Computed example of a mutant assay.
Amino acid sequence: MPTYGVRGLAVAGASAVGAATLCYLLTALFPLVGVRMARSAAEQLDRDVLLGAVLAEVLFSVPYLLALLTAGTLVVIWTWRARKNLDAFPGAVPNLSPAWAIAGWLVPLANLVVPARVLADLLRNSVWQRRQSWLVGVWWASWLVFLIGDRFVARAEQQRYDRLTELPRNDAEFATYVRFYEDALAPRLVPAVACLVAGIAFVVLVRRISAAQQDRLSRAVPVWPGQPVWPGRPGWPAPAAPMPVAPTSPQVPPTPDGTIGA
Rank of each mutant, 00 (worst) to 15 (best):
A241M: 10
S210L: 14
L144M: 12
P239R: 15
D183N: 02
L69W: 06
A198V: 02
V118G: 07
V197Y: 09
P115S: 09
L45M: 05
L164M: 08
G18A: 13
V62F: 10
R160T: 01
F89V: 14
S133R: 08
A154W: 05
P250S: 14
L9R: 09
G5K: 08
R233C: 07
L26A: 10
G137T: 15
L123N: 06
A56T: 02
V197H: 05
T248V: 12
P234Q: 08
T3R: 13
G52L: 15
P191A: 04
V204M: 15
A262D: 06
L189M: 15
T3M: 12
L96T: 01
P63L: 08
P191H: 01
R151E: 00
L106N: 06
A42R: 14
R83L: 08
V49Q: 13
W105G: 05
V203C: 11
W128V: 03
L9W: 08
R188L: 06
V223G: 05
V17K: 05
Q213R: 04
A211L: 14
R130A: 05
L66C: 12
P247W: 15
A194C: 04
E182Y: 03
P254E: 06
V113F: 13
L135W: 15
P239W: 14
P90R: 10
V62N: 07
T70V: 15
V221D: 11
R155F: 15
G199D: 01
F146W: 13
R36S: 08
W224N: 05
L66P: 07
D87Q: 13
G5P: 09
A198S: 09
L205Y: 09
A198N: 03
A14Y: 02
G5E: 09
A14I: 03
W143D: 00
L86H: 14
A110Q: 12
A82S: 09
A192Q: 14
G52N: 12
S142A: 11
P31S: 01
A220Q: 05
A14M: 08
V178W: 05
V204D: 06
D87M: 14
G13I: 13
A99E: 10
A246G: 03
G34R: 01
V54R: 04
A88L: 13
P237S: 10
R188V: 03
W139V: 01
D150H: 04
A92R: 15
A192R: 14
M243V: 15
E157D: 12
E166L: 10
Y4F: 13
D162V: 10
W80N: 07
P168Q: 11
G149P: 05
N85T: 05
Q159T: 11
L189D: 11
V113H: 07
L74V: 09
R131Y: 10
T176C: 00
R130D: 07
V138A: 00
A220E: 04
R163I: 00
W143C: 00
T255F: 11
L112C: 03
P31T: 00
V54G: 02
L109W: 09
F89A: 08
V145A: 11
I148R: 01
A220K: 02
G232F: 13
V221I: 14
L68F: 14
L22Q: 00
R124T: 02
L68W: 14
Q227C: 09
